[in-house]
Amino acid sequence: MLRIFYTSGLTLMIVAGLAAQPAFAETPNQILSSIQSEAKTVPGFQGFSAERGAIFFKTQHGKEFSCTSCHTENTAAQGKHASTGKAILPLAPSANAERFSDPAKVEKWFKRNCNDVVGRVCAAQEKGDVLTYLLTVKK
């Protein structure tokens, strides 16, 4: 009898735990594949490259800031906003599970930060390269 109570309680907890997960939660790989399906619409797409992503991430694009100005060279560590000094949590999914889990946030930040760093909207190729690179960063 006790055992039934125990197992049903456990089941209930698991169900409640699952229900508490936000509905939009995705994994970085799911987000990457949706970027990929967007990138495929461009003729000549040949997949993403972590190497290209790293270069894009670390170099300036004709503007004052690069991605590393705020996220630093080590994306597994905490960053710092280049003008306000506000701490920025790690960007690499290996160090911060919340990163690249909400498509709406991913879209918002790519839009805002690409504008700051590149001065335009990023291409799906560029976004995919950067995410591929970030997924290779180990904690």
Binding site: S83, K108, K111, R112, N115, D116
Partner: peptide, 9 residues
């Protein structure tokens, strides 16, 4: 917004 486009929906 102080040099940045917030692009809030």
């Amino acid at each position: 917004h102080f040099g940045t486009d917030l692009a809030l929906d």
